[in-house]
Design a protein around this nucleic acid. Sequence first.
DNA 1: AAGTCGTTCAACCGCGTCTAC
DNA 2: AGTAGACGCGGTTGAACGACT
Length: 324
Amino acid sequence: MGHHCCSKQKVKRGLWSPEEDEKLIRHITTHGHGCWSSVPKLAGLQRCGKSCRLRWINYLRPDLKRGSFTEQEERTIIDVHRILGNRWAQIAKHLPGRTDNEVKNFWNSVIKKKLISQGLDPNTHNLLSTQQITKNKNYQKDNNHSSSVFTVDTSPCKEILPNLSNTFEFQNPNLTQNQNHLVEFSSCSNSILSSGFGILNENCMWASNINNVFEQSLMMKSSGAVQEDQMQKEEQGVLLEDQQMMKRKLVGEDIINDDQEQLIYRVNDDEQLLNNVCDHQSTDINNAMFDDSSNIDFDFMDSALVPPAIYCNMNSIDHIAWDC
DNA sequence: AAGTCGTTCAACCGCGTCTAC
DNA sequence: AGTAGACGCGGTTGAACGACT
């Protein structure tokens, strides 16, 4: 049974031959694809239009980047996936030259396993639950992997908080002692510290790509049409008023402060924001609140920023987030 | 050398959405 | 407003390949 768009045609299925590729490339480069359902006939192919479209988008179009994913691309995928979930097409838009199919396959074959081996749930990016950990233990046992202790390189924080120790080690209490193999975030492909960080109290730190969260928190609150408009503006380098306001609030003018959480943010590649953070750390940051009149989705901010990657000193905040 | 198993990734399937009529 | 065709997306499948026995 073929697709409804080409059910009357006799269509070939399976892998494409070089001859078929050549026919498709020649047709599209000279005429464009137009209506995909008419492409097979015009290009002289015994294929369904849908199959032609897929072959072109995923394999033949000239702007595709071939070869292995770079570490930066891997970090981007993890960052965006944490926010968007399995929206492969949206994730692929952040990776020029990569297709949704490619990103999806890379996620399923590589990244997913890495996150699991680091004690993270690949769906939620939270730490794995006890049951999941048990499953993971079996996985690790079977596959000779383990990673219950995380060593976090704090060097990116030094300019802000020079008294921080050089590294923190965080152990998931759900994992056993005999699994204490170290995972160094600075050397592994985990996205977290590469893209920014925050600090909760003195000895507890988390990290996230704050820029993505800003963008997504705005989008989550917006209607579809407005989202599209925002994305277009972002692509054009227009920083939306809400985003500017949000960043100001987070980095200097109105930093959240309660007994448990003092949030200080740094955003890579944004010196102004970094300066704001540095300027602000010696000042009093009491009683700041977000109002609800902006377009920022605070529930989303909360879920996107805090739970996925809280790595803390277990002496000060025992067992936080390990079981979430 | 042959067989088995696990992994990767191109391609397919089915469904939801969009658009033109 | 309803319908059909086209498109786009995410999940799944299976061929190809390499590692291992």
